[in-house]
Amino acid sequence: MDKEKIKSLLTFLIAGMISLWFLTPIIFITLSAFATSKDYYNPNYIIPRHYTFSHFYKLFFTLSAGHATLISLSVAALTILLSFLLGVPAGYALSRYKFKGKNTLKLTVLSTRMFPLMILAIPLLIIFMQIGISDTLWGIVLAHTTMVLPFVILITSSIFAGVDIAFEEAALIFGLSRSKAFFKITLPLALPGLAASAIFAFIMSWNEVFVASILTLQNRTLPAQILSTAMDSPDYYKFTAGFIMAVPALVFIFFARRYLVSLWGISLK
């Protein structure tokens, strides 16, 4: 065999090992989520042979995972809505205007990431109790928006910066007002990127467990519900729950994969 062949074989082997390392836990939890409990506990079957939907059914309808999933979805959707309403204009301002204090504002937005959510959750609970929205999804939405907002601002600003300002200026020249130029030209051009960042905002909210656990008791999000009940439940429920947690994130990240590297790149600056 010549050197080139050995090299490509080696590359293939390493790539295979990497894929196995990253995929195996996901494949295993999928198997366990659908395995019948008998097969799961049978030490002779490494790979379960019988599969069932009953864990999902039980989790969703008799345990409160259905309710929790709904809350998680609503929280994520409202968080995206609120954080985009607040963050898109700010991101647009950062990308399109030169103004006094711009760098200070940008730095302020960046520095909010220094504060861990742990320190926010505690006072927020007390504030929410005072204004009567503790243990509601609104409380979590407000907290999650604080978490997601800086990220939305920075990402949207770089997405708008990626839309050549000349496109917008051409629209101004050819008869549109500034706001119309934004909605007719800039927004459609930025839409794929904005959709991808919405997906990332969704994932951040959907995955967040600490604040959600502290702020709610009855109206728990899915991760909060799992955190408080999983370790006292039978194993197969744990894995079904873990699987349910993972699926939307996996599906969404698949759709946003083209933006993966660049978006994470921005959000991690």
Binding site: D164, A166, E169, A170, I173, L176, S177, I185, L189
Partner: peptide
């Protein structure tokens, strides 16, 4: 504003949407 001047413009990088 530009839209009320009855002008048009060719941009350096064309800005063809």
């Amino acid at each position: 504003p530009p839209k009320d001047r009855n002008i048009s413009m060719v941009f350096q990088n064309y800005a063809v949407w």
